[in-house]
Design a protein around this nucleic acid. Structure first.
Length: 445
RNA sequence: GUGGGUAUAGCUCAAUUGGUUAGAGCGCUGGAUUGUGAUUCCAGAGGCUGGGGGUUCAAGUCCCCUUACUCACCCCA
């Protein structure tokens, strides 16, 4: 027998989640679910593994390179790179059963074999929501509203949703006779806030070989500034004469009008004509979302409109729009901003096991409180009180219930509130209702 | 995938120009305290200095490889 131990470790870009990280992580998922459901999105799931021909067909060379892919027996399989391509396969396969329009959300892990960095992992969860089967601008507006609700429900007020429209970009590219270079031009344009107009210009000249005058036309976009309405106005002359661009500009105006009427301000929603996003399938509205306090983390929620989601798998034309919350990136950002609670417990209340002979009474009290909606933990051993208290405190419980010989004789319990150390005596009645009420009134604060 | 930086206890960091047995704070376990956490005092556990190889009388320290993290690209949640 070898006594050589295997060093416990995880693959680069893959992580363990300890309880204090997993508790807020699950809470984020619950928040996302709640917000999505409030708009009528319904949950689906798809396999993490698919045939490579399903996942690789659509992507660029870059996504193919990042895909985890292997042979299993005779099959060539791959791990999903995002949740959108599986959705395309899913709706192509099931659209008769689903009916259109179809609004789904999907929370799941995806895998990308790229170099990890802060907020960038090789395995991470995405929380997608999409509306399939409609071109209505109402869906574009709702997509922005969902993102706004979602980020606020998570607890942020300092964030910026950046809005743009690919029709504006593509229309202006057409006007400048640069349509054939759209990928290179948009890729360079996307870097505008990061590297500035001069470097963007150089990159465009280098990659396209287009004349200065054409590049200048594109770079007019970098001159645009002001309020959302001013930007729309300034876009007027840039878009003039190109149907696609004008259509895009109108859609931008529609989204701004509607969301403004519902109370979204420029603090949280801003047109940014330089953003281009995922260069493969977006065709209309595009959005990305940044935390004001951590802009370098990149977008935590991005998406956009596409004309034909499932064209690889069906002849049905399926337009749609959706976005994806980068749950693990957001979690990493919150950790860096020290916004995560330190709690290591899921029970707000702990009962100490004071008197071993009263185990049944403790179990009954715990069951009573649970049935009234309180998460309760009974300390598993009848150890010294100070150790039991220490456990409750270290894990982040809010209250401890103590019942010893004296209390049982008097028909009461002591409830200690750990934050301030105060102790309250409450009657131990048939269903522990008074104790439950007291705890509920304190714990919800 | 390309290029730079870093790696010492669970965490944050020490350790003369290479020189005895690698230290501290926090955290963890127990005790002081058999009816009370967070404060105080005491004790203990925890390190093949990320892993492997090399130079040297001698390596945490110098060299090479590797792995992980990190930053910039690429791309993107």
């Amino acid at each position: 027998m070898s006594n050589q131990l295997i060093q416990p470790r995880t693959l680069s870009g893959f992580r363990d989640f300890l309880p204090e990280m997993m508790i807020p992580r699950e809470k984020l998922m619950e928040t996302a679910r709640r917000v999505y459901r409030s708009y009528g999105f319904v949950p689906i799931d798809t396999p993490t593994l698919e045939l490579s021909e399903i996942l690789c067909g659509k992507g660029s060379e870059e996504t193919d390179r990042q895909m985890y892919r292997f042979q299993h027996g005779k099959r060539d399989v791959a791990m999903r790179f995002d949740l959108t391509v599986p959705l395309a396969r899913f709706v192509a396969q099931h659209h008769n059963e689903l009916g259109m329009p179809f609004k789904r959300y999907h929370i799941g892990n995806v895998w990308r074999g790229e170099r990890p960095q802060a907020g960038r992992f090789r395995e991470f969860a995405q929380c997608d929501f999409d509306t399939i089967g409609t071109n209505s601008i109402a869906s574009d507006i709702e997509t922005v509203l969902v993102i706004n609700d979602l980020i606020r429900a998570i607890g942020f007020e300092q964030f910026k949703i950046r809005l743009n429209n690919r029709k504006v970009l593509n229309g202006i590219l057409e006007k400048a006779n640069l349509a054939e270079h759209s990928v290179a031009v948009l890729r360079a344009l996307d870097k505008l806030p990061k590297i500035g107009p001069e470097k963007v210009r150089l990159e465009m000249l280098e990659t396209t070989g287009a004349p200065d005058s054409a590049i200048d036309q594109i770079l007019m976009l970098s001159q645009i500034s002001g309020t959302n309405r001013e930007i729309i106005q300034q876009l007027g002359s840039l878009c003039a004469g190109n149907e696609l661009a004008e259509q895009g500009r109108e859609q931008l105006a529609d989204v701004i009008d509607a969301t403004e009427a519902l109370g979204l301000t420029e603090n949280n929603l801003e047109i940014d004509v330089s953003i281009a996003r995922g260069l493969d399938y977006y065709t209309g509205t595009i959005v990305e979302t940044f935390l004001t306090d951590l802009p370098s983390f990149g977008s935590i929620c991005s998406g956009g409109r596409y004309d034909n989601l499932a064209q690889l798998y069906t002849k049905q034309q399926l337009p749609g729009i959706g976005a994806s919350l980068g749950l693990d990136r957001l979690l990493a950002a919150m950790q860096q901003l020290d916004l995560l609670p330190k709690t290591k417990t899921t029970a707000e209340v702990m009962i100490v096991q004071f008197d071993k002979s009263k185990l049944k009474e403790y179990l009954k009290l715990a069951a009573d409180l649970r049935s009234q909606g309180i998460a309760v933990e009974l300390y598993p051993e009848s150890k010294k009180l100070n150790q039991q208290f220490k456990y409750a405190d270290r894990r982040g419980a809010r209250a401890v219930i103590i019942a010893g010989t004296d209390e049982f004789a008097a028909g009461v319990v002591q409830v200690k509130w750990l934050a301030d150390g105060t102790q309250t005596e409450l009657p131990l009645t048939e269903n522990s209702t008074e104790i439950a009420e007291w705890l509920i009134s304190r714990c919800t604060k």
